[in-house]
Amino acid sequence: MRDELQKRVVKGPDGVEFEVEPLKDYYCEAPPAEHPPAYLKIVEDLFNWARSQSLWILGFGTGCGAIEMRPLMTPRFDAYRYGVQWRPTPRQSNLFIISGYLSVKTLKRVIRSYEQMQNPKYVVGLGSCTINGGMYWDSYNTIKRLDDYLPVDLYIAGCMPRPEALLAGFETLKHIIREGKAEGANLYARNFDWYKANQKKVIHDWDMPDYNW
């Protein structure tokens, strides 16, 4: 645990001493809860349609695949016409694209960002590296199977997949969402202990709270 996360006594600028416990003061201690579909089927279908037509991607590139996402914003591919947009903050996005290899160091940030997204949220693994490690299969510092650490809804295979493959992947993801099968956030909450154990198995210097909403 890093020093600044330890419980300690701090002296304020006005001379008053007070106790700070960052893990309790700044972070939520509650584990994630399951939020099952709560409404009538017809309402949930409408919501799923809206979710599928409004995919907000978290602007977070982990590996070389990030460079395949940029052309999607340009006139040549223009993913906006399919309801796909990029958001700069995890709070507002509902789609996390793990673009390529994922080093253990980046995995920490990915977990924190993923947990700050709101239910329902989707994960797409882009490229072979997220399936079995790809060309980094024997690397000492990348993870091999993304599905062990985050619930993945869809893989787009290739090294690297072209932007067209990404567009096709978005269409497939829309089908999955409309069928109501994209419940990754609930899966994560249900198997939270298993995911955390897997994450801690590879991240040896775990210096963050277990759950950062």
């Binding site: 809206a50 979710r51 223009d78 906006y80 329902p120």
Partner: peptide, 22 residues
């Protein structure tokens, strides 16, 4: 020189944001 969002995109975004569960 892009096509841009569909004309009903704002409705989809709005319904989606109201339908987020947590």
């Amino acid at each position: 020189r892009r096509r841009g969002i569909p004309i009903w995109q704002n409705y989809a975004d709005l319904i989606k944001n109201y339908s987020i569960r947590s």
